[in-house]
Every structure is written in C-alpha cells, then in structure tokens.
C-alpha cells in the first residue's frame, strides 16, 4: 500500500541559490498529488528531495524534514529509500542496450534477485500493472528502444514498479507523448493509486485537473496553496493560484 508523506520546513539549495524556501506539506497515501507551478518554481527539486536525488548533485544542500509514514527518510539508506520511492522522468529512459524484459527486472537484479522464475513473475506483474503486458508479451527480448514513446514511458513505469515501491514520483511523465499515449498514462496513474502514493509534477493544468486528488501550487520556491483538486480549479483561495491556473500570470 501507499505511504503518507510529511514534509516540514523543507529548504533546498543549488549553490547559493535557494530553490525551496520552507515547504510544509502533508501528502495522503493512495492519492495522486499534482505539483503545478511555473518553470523554476522548485517543483522538480521538491520531488527530487523526496527520494534524496537532489543531494546527489554537486553544490546542493537540503534542510528540513521529510518522513514516510512517520519515519524520517534521512534514517534510511538512500538506495533503500529509492526502492521505496520510485521515480519516472519526463523523457522515457529505458536502458538502450537492454531488452524489454531486462529493463523491467534491472532494479530487481541490482537488489540481488537471481531466481529466474521470480524475476519472470515479477516482470509480468509489473508489465501488467503498467498496462503494457498485452502489447509486449510476445517480444520481451526485443530492445526497449523498439517501443513507441508512450510504450517506453510505460516500460519505465513498469521498471519502477518492479522493485515494489510504495510512493511513485513522476516528473512530467506525459509531456513528450501524444494525446493517446497521454491518456494511457493518465488511466494508468488512476489505477496505480489504489496501490501507490503518487506525486506528479506537471505543466499541463488539465492533466492535473483530470487525474489528481489534490493539487499543490508552487511559486518561487514556496508552496502557495495545496488543496483538493476540485477546489483549486474551481475556487482557489489565493489570487496567485487563480492567476496561474487561469493563465493570467506574470
């Protein structure tokens, strides 16, 4: 099942540039939370802090507290944390030299799983959950790069699901896809929230409105407003949120 996240006074820097300025946010389990905001507002940095990827970059710094079901993520080994908190990126990034099958089980092998039956079962389960199984079951040994853009992105989702995370971070997962592939991904996200807590960064306002249970609006490194999506898109409390979602910003 998905886990809840509590973020307290989260601050993040690139060099001397403060990207996040004290974010406080509660993320409920088994919900889709959309993070919206203009470019440079700190959305991607925020999600990259949740699986401790931000701090892997040179000259970066993070301060504050993030806890998963009440346990600080800083008490966890970063590798173990990233197993629990999976991530899907804007551009589908299957391992180019690997087959579809090997892509899906790559994380499991890294975690030491060797039993072929277990790997096979896990690959099928992950591909089914990513709604890709029926399309690739007869060509699992083909290169991951042989798939279409939308299929590659679902392959990456399957790869993230294979290690059985409880939280899935998605950084603009459909921004490079056509409307049909986008619909596939959105339907997938809706079904995956039964099992996972999902946080999605998106520039597509309609996408946030369609799939998210709650929406958070970031601006200049601050969380301006976080609430039920239906409320944010019909009657936001903060004028800055209203200006942004109605396209009258700046």
């Amino acid at each position: 099942m998905g886990q809840s996240l509590s973020i307290h006074n989260l601050e993040a820097w690139y060099g001397s540039n403060k990207i996040l300025k004290g974010i406080n946010m509660e993320i409920r389990p088994n919900q889709v939370t959309a993070i919206i905001g203009p470019s440079g507002c700190g959305k991607s940095t925020f999600v990259r802090c949740i699986n401790r990827m931000h701090e892997t970059l040179p000259r970066t710094r993070v301060r504050g507290e993030i806890s998963l079901d009440g346990r600080s993520i800083y008490d966890l080994n970063p590798v173990a944390l990233r197993k629990t908190v999976g991530m899907v990126f804007q551009k589908a990034n299957p391992f180019p030299s690997m087959s579809i099958y090997d892509n899906v089980v790559a994380g499991l092998r890294l975690n030491g799983m060797k039993n072929k039956q277990e790997l096979k079962a896990s690959a099928e389960k992950s591909l089914r959950m990513a709604a890709l199984w029926d399309e690739v079951k007869d060509r699992l040994n083909y290169s991951g790069m042989s798939l279409s853009g939308g299929q590659q992105q679902r392959l990456c989702i399957a790869r993230a699901l294979a290690v059985e995370p409880s939280v899935l971070l998605m950084d603009e997962p459909a921004s490079a896809l056509d409307p049909i592939a986008t619909t596939h991904i959105e339907e997938l996200i809706r079904s995956l929230k039964e099992i996972y807590t999902i946080i999605i960064v998106t520039h597509n306002m309609q996408q946030a409105a369609r799939i998210a249970d709650s929406t958070a609006f970031f601006l200049s490194g601050e969380l301006v407003e976080h609430g039920p999506t239906s409320e944010i898109f019909t009657n936001p409390h903060d004028k800055r949120t209203e200006d942004y979602i109605t396209g009258r910003f700046g």
Binding site: M205, Q206, A209, F233, T234, N235, P236, E242, I245, T246
Partner: peptide, 9 residues
Amino acid sequence: QQPVAKDLR
C-alpha cells in the same frame, strides 16, 4: 479555452 475558476464561473 478550458476555463477554470472564475473564468469558468
């Protein structure tokens, strides 16, 4: 135009 919030109202 996919209006939202006050625009939609």
